[in-house]
Design a binder for these strands. Structure first.
Lengths: 206, 206
DNA sequence: GTCTATAGGCAGATAGAC
DNA sequence: GTCTATCTGCCTATAGAC
């Protein structure tokens, strides 16, 4: 995958994605992207006419990639708790690359975004809540998960807590705090809920 | 208090605070503030020489106000659970004014902030975690709160979840989702939690 | 598809009059 | 303390050559 030559548009998206995740929508420029990609500012406009077009393409691609990873999680495991663990690990892996979730980042920029971008960011959260709701519903039915309230409410709480854990970890430069928060989060849906928070025994895939 | 005439510096801070909470540090300008306050850009520089100076003053003032509110909560109630409810309501009241937490907002801007600002934002989170740790510790000791893990870990989770609930609500324009998340959060520290029909607790090996 | 050149505007910041 | 005037630099975006 990484050895395949990619088109200019893809390289632009990769670079812009990184910059948005690091600095936010209003703190990256065509000049930044052009420099990193190795072409001129004007050439960027050939691929993405306006910054809004580029931004929308970024969110669209990010959402698609995220949805793909959700499907991958369902393929990899049938156990609700393990699926939730892997879901949290999606966020963790972003943070370990020293980035913030793109849509969490754009959420704070919402007031300054073109309408289409803002709506797509909202859809990202809705998509995640929808997926989690299904997993939680199924897990409760099978008695492999236990939690208070509706699956939808718990799903919203899940997304919120992971986004917040990333936000605080990113903003305070304290990456470890994310892992602790993610662990707490899993504790509250574990059926055998223990008094002491012990690290989760993680099954490794062969 | 609201009838007292305030100095220019205070009015600048009020306006800049609102703009940062709405749009972020990189999406407000001296021109915006000057227009709203009713003076010229150049006059702002008399009060705050650079944007970084203004930003640092904003965070400092915000932190002080927040700490004051924490003290007010301790004065208003002796009950740990009620204190936590009121703590959540601090966040809720910001969101109901259609704003994002200033430090949550600045957390996403971290990579672009002057060092002093970035450190002060990190201190905001640390202060909150510190206060919550005390409340949680005391509540557990008195058996009026119940939760897994250390008080410090739970405190970090608390701040993360509330910040994240604000972030998602703000970014998706769905303010109601915050209240649901805040309610879920309180559920997990309530001592009388869920003794409903649970499957036989199977203890996993650590 | 990529380039040079440039338009037109806004950014943060300063000098100096009043 | 607030003003006018101005500087320098960066921003998004476009025109037109190659």
């Amino acid at each position: 995958m990484s050895t395949i030559a990619r088109g200019t548009a893809d390289r632009i998206l990769d670079t812009a994605e990184r910059l948005v995740q690091l600095r936010g929508y209003n703190a990256f420029s065509y000049a930044d992207v052009a420099k990193a990609v190795g072409i001129r500012k004007a050439s960027l406009h050939y691929h993405f006419a306006t910054k809004g077009d580029l931004g929308l393409a970024l969110v669209t691609r990010y959402r698609r990639a995220f949805v793909d990873q959700l499907h991958a999680i369902e393929s990899a495991s049938d156990d609700p708790l393990e699926r939730l663990e892997r879901y949290g690990e999606l966020y963790g892996s972003v943070l370990r690359r020293k980035r913030m979730c793109m849509c969490g980042m754009l959420a704070t920029d919402a007031a300054t975004l073109p309408r289409a971008m803002r709506e797509s960011v909202a859809e990202f959260f809705a998509e995640n809540v929808g997926w989690l709701t299904r997993i939680l519903e199924q897990g409760r039915k099978r008695r492999e998960l236990r939690f208070a309230g509706t699956p939808a409410a718990m799903a919203t709480f899940f997304v919120s807590s992971l986004e917040g854990a990333m936000l605080v970890a990113y903003g305070s430069g304290n990456v470890e705090s994310f892992d602790g928060a993610a662990r707490q989060l899993l504790t509250i849906v574990r059926p055998e809920r223990a008094k002491a928070a012990t690290p989760t025994p993680r099954r490794k895939a062969p």
